[in-house]
């Protein structure tokens, strides 16, 4: 029982940190950079992706014994595209402002390599419970990455966080950060930070060993 529990925790945590889809696996970078000019947009994108990833994982895992191997990718894509269209319509109906802000990038969730990748690598081989945990962990990691990039860019580029003004009028915003180059720079330096952390952990471990 305890091993089962620890496996659940491990599957969840791995998506959040060790196999973080953006910072470590470098998947889904288009949305990670395109919509993260503010923290709130990053969060909205993360949650929309979470919905699609979790729902598709459930369905794929349920049907994993029924779908013939030869047509599995096409079937996965149909499933994913269905959920993306659903979230697209729902956002447009109930949160039109967010929908306008994210624009075509909601529809582009469908080509986020992260989602198809998890279906192929995990949901098609594991039971529903585990697939949900895996999808939730990966989505949490993705959302975490998007929100952190969003926060960095919004604080530096607009002087605010979740649209709350931080520094007052005297702050001269670093506008370049909310423009496209700022996206590349933010993610570049975050990756640098992740590399450094990994390296440091490795060195610590080898010292104790």
């Amino acid at each position: 029982m305890s091993t089962e529990k620890s496996r659940v925790a491990a599957e969840f945590i791995k998506g959040l940190w060790k196999e973080n889809p953006v910072f470590v696996a470098l998947l889904g970078m288009c949305p990670a950079l395109a919509v993260t000019n503010s923290a709130i947009n990053g969060l909205a994108m993360g949650l929309a992706t979470t919905f699609v990833l979790v729902c598709s994982s459930i369905l794929v895992s349920l049907l994993r014994k029924v779908i013939p191997k030869q047509v599995r990718i096409t079937t996965y894509i149909v499933i994913i595209a269905t959920f993306v269209t659903v979230i697209d319509f729902v956002l447009e109906a109930f949160l039109p402002d967010i929908h306008k802000e994210l624009g075509a990038f909601i529809a582009l969730i469908v080509v986020n390599c992260l989602i198809l990748g998890r279906q192929e690598a995990f949901a098609s081989k594991n039971n529903i419970g585990m697939s949900i945990i895996d999808a939730a962990g990966m989505s949490a990691g993705f959302t975490f990455a998007l929100v952190s990039i969003g926060i960095i860019r919004e604080v530096l580029g607009n002087g605010s966080i979740f649209a709350v003004d931080l520094f007052g009028k005297s702050f001269e915003p670093w506008i370049i950060m909310i423009l496209p180059p700022g996206g590349f720079f933010s993610l570049g330096f975050l990756l640098l930070f992740f590399n450094w952390m990994t390296e440091r952990n490795k060195q610590k471990r080898s010292k104790t060993a």
Partner: peptide, 16 residues
């Protein structure tokens, strides 16, 4: 399989 997947997805989408 493909036809069925397409059919189901069509149904859901029309509904939404």
């Amino acid at each position: 399989t493909l036809g069925f997947a397409g059919f189901m997805s069509g149904l859901i989408l029309v509904g939404v």
